[in-house]
Each structure stands twice: as structure tokens, then as C-alpha cells.
Design a protein around this nucleic acid. Structure first.
Lengths: 340, 340
DNA sequence: TGTTGTCAATAAATCGATTTAGGAAAAGGT
DNA sequence: ACCTTTTCCTAAATCGATTTATTGACAACA
């Protein structure tokens, strides 16, 4: 169907290898006469020849393709990562294949298998973290991959994460300084290392100020709107309501606010809220949210950089864990606690 | 490096073709002894053999891959499309490669070239619509593609779009019936057929009620937050302010609201707003937005269906244009015009 | 005994490029 | 006139699968 290198060779009257060498450009002005080169280029143009990458890939053992496995592209956090990864890919002439796990471990494992069959050269992944054996396998094979936004304690890998412990620590400290003493923690997916670190940061801040950790104030599991809604509803039904909430992930914020408004409470008068944001596409309020905004673009970029490095020099690469700080921005969803 | 079919064949002591035939499963229980089959399967498992798709692709002239070219994955509208396309792809064992054009025509053209080199089997695309020659080329070649959310008047293609004219018509009619007589239209990208149809719907509704079309009330170009912000600011500076706004795309809503709040106006008391939404990840207000919500999931699904059909039967396929209705949902961002 | 048929497996071409080694012809040197 | 060098190009292997045609062995049948 499509015109091949062989076809071009025949038209020009030379051997396919000659055409290949001319087009590769590696032997520039060398070993091929100017006349032949011209003729080849003309013919290529005339027949609109475009090389078959499948064939090149096979021969060169390269696909110029990486995989991106994330929980859900609908989550603007991951969309942002995908975006910036895409930009980096483009620069290096790579493409990427996106797979959504929906936080289902089995899907993740299958996707990895599938992508390996497709001979992707590397993988950026936000792991489900319900199991991890498959990563040890990847490490054994020295298969290039980078964990994004989550990491494993147990073994060394490439990883790019945010400074979750400190990010939340500071935010909670801020709430404490506003005089809040009952601060709720709306939790995301328990299994996620990021969420775990945020919970630790929350506890760490409370501990610093000698405040009791009340397990009733730590609720929720899962990074969904519904999860945030239910958890917040639960926490607002406590006999002793919290006066402030730390919402530990971006999507959850939407559910949390829903629950707050539904309970007839207002922000920040009845309850102060600190959330996670990323860029402007996240929940928009008639007032800006006090929030921890993560450097998503950087996350994608740095992940690609690490991955690319591993791909380029598979033998002499070193695993790196990059920790990126977030920005804490004070909006209008927080205020001093009543009576303080 | 990786273990190949040949390696397996050697281990088992048979010819590669035998291994291939066993693994393909096409010659089930036939022409290969039970003993050999078992041995092959065992060896495959033992050495963790996974077929090289590059090689298969080349031989079979299939990549099981399609392309998705969209303006921006960060826009939840396109993220939603990508999501549902992904789900459909998975069912049919396809993968997809996402490319963001940022509404830059040149990028679109380059991406198409690149994807064709990679021998993707088909393309779902939301075209930039600054030019269109390259699509006529695709049609000539009978290359499978589906336009999503935008279409071309000039020639027949596969396309899945929303019912933009009627969707906006009804929304504007609703505003008129609330007594609004100065209704602003915050426009998205002029070049987009979807936006054009929405503008027509706006004008059509006004015409139906014998209302003058005031060009000052039609502002903006470009589907960005900034665009929406500037356009809205402009319209709010008119000597005779509009009492209602029809915001013609989802991202723009954020900018429009920003401008409204900045001007010290409130919604819906000072100005009623109808926007475009899709699912819950769009701008969240302390009140729900009156909005036209588009069936994004359907859009992705139907686009894949059309594309798959074309891929499966390239010769007997027929171009189809599918028009999907949106849902108009009345929230709290609209109310009766003052004095009516 | 010779023919036919079945079963199990192989040989070799193929997909479309790249690349190493080499070869023929022209140019250059003495 | 002969050897060397350079220039220009070709041959053929290769990447890792799939598939069509074919072969060899053995049993069945007349």
C-alpha cells in the first residue's frame, strides 16, 4: 500500500541501502554523489514517502515510546503531569501511551505487561501501591522507570515526589497559629505513600504544639469526590466538630466543600479549609482557596529527565529520588478560630 | 537481551514456526502433538517470554494503536474524551497516543505526520481548523479518522459532535424567558465550528424573540481562562452592561467568573451566568452553575466506534456525522432579570 | 507392494527498514 | 603502466515475529 524505501530505490535506480544511507543523513556529502542524493530526495518528496517506523523500530530496537501509568487522567493533577511529560517527550522525539489504573492493582500489572510487549523504552508511573513485587522485577531487569508522586520505602528506585510531609506540616502549623485546635484531616487513599506522608505531616505538626491526636478527626480513604464528601460528612457529624479541615488531595476538596455547604456551614466562618490545588483548573470558588499547590509541571518534567537518563545510559545510571517543595498560598478559605 | 521466540524454539528443540503456531492458538489441538505444546508453554512460562510486538506489528501490518490529537489534555473536556477513548481502546486491545496541539495548526500537521510514520491505524482529532488541506489528503488516502467535537462543512468525514446550535439556542431562550434582554456571548475560539454553531444558536434565539443582535455583546476569541477573563471584563465595561452571560466553553467560565467577581458584581444578583460544564471536575462554586453539560463520555465512545468501524472495513465504510444532545441543567447562577 | 492419508514439524519467504563489509570504477601518484 | 586511494554504490545479514508450502514418518488400505 504505502510506498516503501524499496520502491523509492527502484524508481531512482539504486539499491535500497543507498536510499537508506542518504535519508539517514549520517554519511552527509560522503559516499553518495550529489546527483544521486538530489534524485533520491526528489523522489521521496514526489511519492510522499514516509519511513515505516515499525520496521525501523524492529531493526534499531527502539520505539521512541514511553508509558505513563496513572490513576486517572481526569484528575487534573495527573492531566498536568501528562501535559508536561508530553512537552518533554516532544522535545526528544518520544511519544507516550497513557493508561488509567483507577487505582486497581491488577490493571497496573496488566498495563505494565502490555507496555513491555510493545517494547516501550521506559515508564513513568504513579503506582497503586497495593502490591509491589512487580517493581522489584522491573528493577532486577534494570527496566527504566520512574515513580511519580508516590514511592516505595522498601527499595531504591527513581522517583519524583512532592515534599508531602513538610507541605502539610506547614499548612497545619498555619492553622494552629490561627488558633484552631480541632483540625480535621480528610484523608485520600491510605495506601498512597503521598497520603501517608501527609498524614504524618499532620500528626507531626500537632505533636510539635503538644496537641492531642484524635483519631476521630482523621477520616476517609480514596481520592474521589464521593470519598471526600462522605468523609467530610462524617467528620461534621462529630459531637465536637472540627473548626478547620486539611483536605489531603485535590479532587477530594470538591466533595469536602459539597458536604460543608450541604450541612449549611460556610467557609471560612464556620470551618476553615486548606486544600490541595494545582493550577487554575481545580475547584474554583467565589474566593480563592487556601492551598498547597504542587509543582505538577516540574513533576512531569523531572520524571522524564530521570527516565531519559536511565534509558540513555542503562548501565551507569543511578537511582535518584527528587523531592519538590510545594507552594503554600493563603486564600480566603481560612481565618482565625473563633474566640482566639 | 530479551528472550525471543527463537530462543524458546531452541530450548524446546523445535523450529520457531512451531512455537509461533502453538502460541498463536490458531491451530488448536491440530498439527502439533500434545507433548510439544505442553513443553512449549512450560518453556514460555519458565523464561517469561513475551512476544515482541514490534516484530509482530511489522509482519502483520498492525500496530493496535490509534492517535488522539486534542488542543489540551488539561482541559477536562478533552481529558474526559481521552478517558472514555481509553476505556474503549482497552476493550479492543488498542493503545492510544495523545498529542496536544495548543490550537497551533502547525503542530497538528506535524503530529499527523509523526503518527502516520508510526503507522497508527486511525486518528481521533479535534482539529485546530485554521486550515484543512491535510484532511482532504487523509480522505483521499482513505486514512481512518474521526473528528471530535468539531467538524468541517466543506467535506464529508466521520465526526462526533454535540448539538451546539440547539444546546445554546435553548439556553439563551431560557435566559430570555427569565426576562433578560441584554445577554452577552463570551465567545471561545472563533475558528472552531463548535463555537461558531454556538454563536449561531445564540443569534438564532435572539432572532426568534425579535431581539436586536448587538455586536458589542459578542466578545472574545480563544478557549482560555485569560481569554474569558479579558472578554468578560470588556463586556462588563460597556456603558449598558449585560444582565446575563452565555459563556461558550468550559474553561472560559473560570476566567469569566474571575472578571465578574473582580468587578465587584455577584452571580446571579447582578449578572446571570450560563456556562458549559462537564462532570464534576469543572469549576466548582458554592452554588451549582446553570449549565450546558455535554456528553463527553459518549463523545469519546462514539468516536472510537466510528473509527474502529473504518479500520475494520476500510473499503465499505460510510462517513457518519453523529450529533449528541447536551443536558441543560438549571443551577443557581441564573435568575429573573430585575424589573421583570 | 505400492498407494493414499494423516500427523507432526520444518523451511523459507516476508514485513521494511539499517548497517557492515566489500567491490567496481574513476582519479591520483610515481 | 601499475599501484593506491577515493568515490560511489551494492550485497546480504539482521531485527523477531508469522505463514504458506512442503517434507518425512508412519499407519492404513487395497
Amino acid at each position: 500500500m504505502a510506498v516503501t524505501l524499496k520502491d523509492i530505490a527502484k524508481k531512482v535506480g539504486v539499491h535500497p541501502s543507498t536510499v537508506s544511507r542518504v535519508l539517514s543523513g549520517k554519511y552527509d556529502n560522503f559516499n553518495v554523489s550529489e546527483k544521486t542524493r538530489k534524485l533520491i530526495f526528489e523522489t521521496v518528496k514526489k511519492f510522499n514517502y514516509s519511513p515505516n517506523e515499525m520496521a525501523r523500530n524492529l531493526r534499531l530496537q527502539k520505539t521512541q515510546t514511553i508509558g505513563l501509568i496513572i490513576p486517572d487522567i481526569l484528575n487534573p493533577f495527573y492531566a498536568g503531569m501528562a501535559r508536561s511529560l508530553g512537552i518533554e517527550c516532544e522535545k526528544k522525539d518520544y511519544s507516550f501511551i497513557i493508561c488509567n489504573t483507577d487505582e486497581i492493582q491488577e490493571k497496573e500489572i496488566n498495563f505494565i505487561q502490555m507496555l513491555k510487549r510493545r517494547r516501550i523504552e521506559g515508564l513513568v508511573i504513579t503506582p497503586v501501591q497495593d502490591s509491589k513485587d512487580h517493581f522489584e522485577e522491573l528493577i532486577e531487569e534494570n527496566f527504566p522507570f520512574v515513580l511519580a508522586s508516590r514511592y516505595f520505602d522498601d527499595f531504591e528506585t527513581n522517583a519524583v515526589v512532592t515534599d508531602d510531609y513538610n507541605d502539610v506540616f506547614k499548612a497545619v502549623e498555619y492553622l494552629i497559629k490561627l488558633g484552631h485546635s480541632r483540625i480535621g484531616f480528610i484523608r485520600g487513599r491510605k495506601a498512597s505513600s503521598a497520603i501517608q506522608d501527609r498524614e504524618k505531616g499532620y500528626k507531626g505538626a500537632l505533636a510539635k504544639y503538644n496537641m492531642q491526636i484524635d483519631q476521630d478527626l482523621i477520616v476517609g480513604n480514596g481520592c474521589t469526590i464521593e470519598g471526600g464528601y462522605k468523609a467530610t460528612k462524617e467528620i461534621l457529624n462529630l459531637p465536637e466538630k472540627p473548626t478547620a479541615l486539611l483536605v489531603s488531595a485535590n479532587v477530594i476538596v470538591v466533595g469536602a466543600l459539597e458536604a460543608i455547604f450541604e450541612a449549611g456551614l460556610s467557609v471560612p466562618d464556620d470551618v476553615s479549609v486548606v486544600g490541595f490545588t494545582n493550577m487554575k483548573s481545580t475547584p474554583y470558588l467565589s474566593y480563592p482557596l487556601t492551598s498547597i499547590s504542587q509543582p505538577i509541571g516540574q513533576l512531569g518534567k523531572r520524571a522524564f529527565d530521570l527516565l531519559f537518563q536511565h534509558i540513555q545510559s542503562p548501565d551507569e545510571h543511578k537511582y535518584k529520588k527528587i523531592i519538590l517543595p510545594s507552594k503554600f498560598s493563603i486564600g480566603k478559605s481560612t481565618q482565625k478560630a473563633l474566640g482566639s
